[in-house]
């Protein structure tokens, strides 16, 4: 009885053989989709990196041996590291406040965080392109306040990319950090106070260490997501300040060089997956992506 409930279509199911496990068949459509349109294409692309134009590792030698590409790797890692740093430094106090604020105000802040996260990526990036341009609101405000004499160059460089990316990554930092702080028992901090710790001591000695696994896990996730970002760097960075994802797209779209495209994709993939493996090993979770 129960066994027949567990197969999707008992009427059509062939008589069970001994080693056929139960309940596998319903996953087949998803499995076929993932194998044919995910695993296979990625495998083909990566294979092309060692077979085109000729068999060998010359694509990797070019990619890892040239100053032009080295600059792109440096750009990618620098921007990702800065974005991670700023996101955590801004996100931590906000998450902390959210965890202890009175309910109604916390709900408003939460709604703003979610609205920002779910607003179309291009709409948000467009907004920053306009806000940060030479004659944009940011420059005008700073000049109006007398803080600067000349408009700052805020777009078509890595400053623009960093601002735009911090904006996009903040919700992805605030939400997991909020969870991490909510899991801390307030009584532990009460105990620290009773033992005579002042605020600063309680913060550095108790709250921060207790929140550290959450902070590290959130930071790693933001870093990994930033490494592979395409749209925001492409629009706010300009062509002179490329990042890795744009390089992959450029190899394929403008240069039609599948070998180099595949090689760059493999580099990004290896870095991404090893950082996720590290995350799984350290924190036992792949982070909360959305």
């Amino acid at each position: 009885m129960v066994a027949s409930v567990e197969t999707e279509m008992p009427a059509l199911a062939p008589p069970k053989r001994r080693f056929v496990p139960t309940g596998f068949k319903p996953t087949l459509p998803a499995l076929i989709l993932v194998l044919v349109f995910f695993v296979l294409p990625v495998a083909i692309l990566l294979t092309r990196s060692v077979t085109e134009p000729v068999l060998g590792l010359q694509n990797y030698a070019t990619l890892l041996g040239s100053a032009t590409y080295l600059k792109i790797f440096v750009n990618t890692f620098t921007v990702s590291a800065l974005v991670t740093l700023f996101s955590v430094m801004i996100g931590f106090p906000v998450a902390w406040a959210l965890a202890i604020m009175p309910r109604p105000s916390a709900n408003i802040v939460f709604a703003i965080v979610l609205l920002s996260m779910w607003t179309n990526l291009l709409a948000r990036t467009y907004a920053w392109m306009v806000l940060l341009q030479r004659t944009g609101v940011v420059n005008k405000t700073l000049m109006g306040l007398g803080l600067i004499d000349q408009p700052l160059m805020l777009v078509n460089n890595l400053v623009g990319v960093t601002i735009g990316m911090v904006y996009i990554m903040l919700p992805f930092t605030i939400i997991p950090l909020y969870g991490a702080i909510r899991r801390i028992d307030p009584m532990i901090l009460q105990a620290a106070a009773l033992c005579g710790a002042n605020r600063r001591q309680a913060f550095t000695g108790v709250l921060l260490p207790l929140a550290m696994p959450g902070i590290a896990s959130g930071a790693l996730m933001v870093f990994v997501m930033s490494l592979g970002y395409f749209v925001t760097p492409a629009l706010l960075g300009g062509t002179a300040n490329m990042m890795l994802a744009e390089l992959i797209a450029q190899f394929v779209q403008s240069l039609v060089n599948w070998g180099m495209g595949g090689a760059a994709a493999l580099v990004l993939l290896v870095v991404t997956l090893s950082l996720y493996a590290l995350q799984l090993r350290l924190f036992g979770t792949a982070g909360e992506r959305s």
Partner: peptide
């Protein structure tokens, strides 16, 4: 978790 640009190029 895979960078979407890799999937885009591969597909």
């Amino acid at each position: 978790i895979l960078p979407v640009v890799v999937l885009a190029v591969a597909l």
